[in-house]
Amino acid sequence: MEVDKGKGEAEETRKVAEADRDTVTLKSSDGKLFEVSKEAAARLSTVLAGMIAGGSIDDNGTDLKQIGSEALENVVDYCNKHANSIPSAALISSSISFNTAPFKEPEEWERKFVDRLSHDALFDLVEAANFLGMERLLDVTCHKISEMMKGKSPDQIREVFNIKNDYTKEELEEIRQELAWAFYDD
């Protein structure tokens, strides 16, 4: 079934030929609608891929009741940015500066993407990524959280994340004894 679409974007035309619609519409818990590239959504989210494959995508907006509009906007923004990032540029730069990073380190734009989020927005996005089965976004957001912990003392970490230390003194002592090997040089 070939539908002639008059839409402008040159790089989109190839994708349009492959399917009737090249976007899907998602609806947040508070009823806001967002459009996202079908290809990116299917590639980045196992849950959306399943819904697209299973035909349970609603053209008027697929309900995602667990995700608020701010988090969904970030999810959609991430998908669209991902779809537009140019792999050849990344390849050239990575071939020029090798690194031995253990993980697929967040790319520059991914870093910026999570850096601008507020504390709450970051956690909303982690939960949304987890719900939608977005492995890469989960990596990038969890990596960001880990960076907020790196090089900090337990007290500083508690302060950053508002964690209440409800250990008793006896319990703390017990842990420090049990795991003494991890607490030298303190």
Binding site: M149, P154, I157, R158, I163, K164, N165, D166, Y167, E171, L172, I175, R176, L179, A182, F183
Partner: peptide, 8 residues
């Protein structure tokens, strides 16, 4: 390992 000390 040291995260064990944050809270129970």
């Amino acid at each position: 390992v040291r995260t064990c000390i944050l809270s129970p």
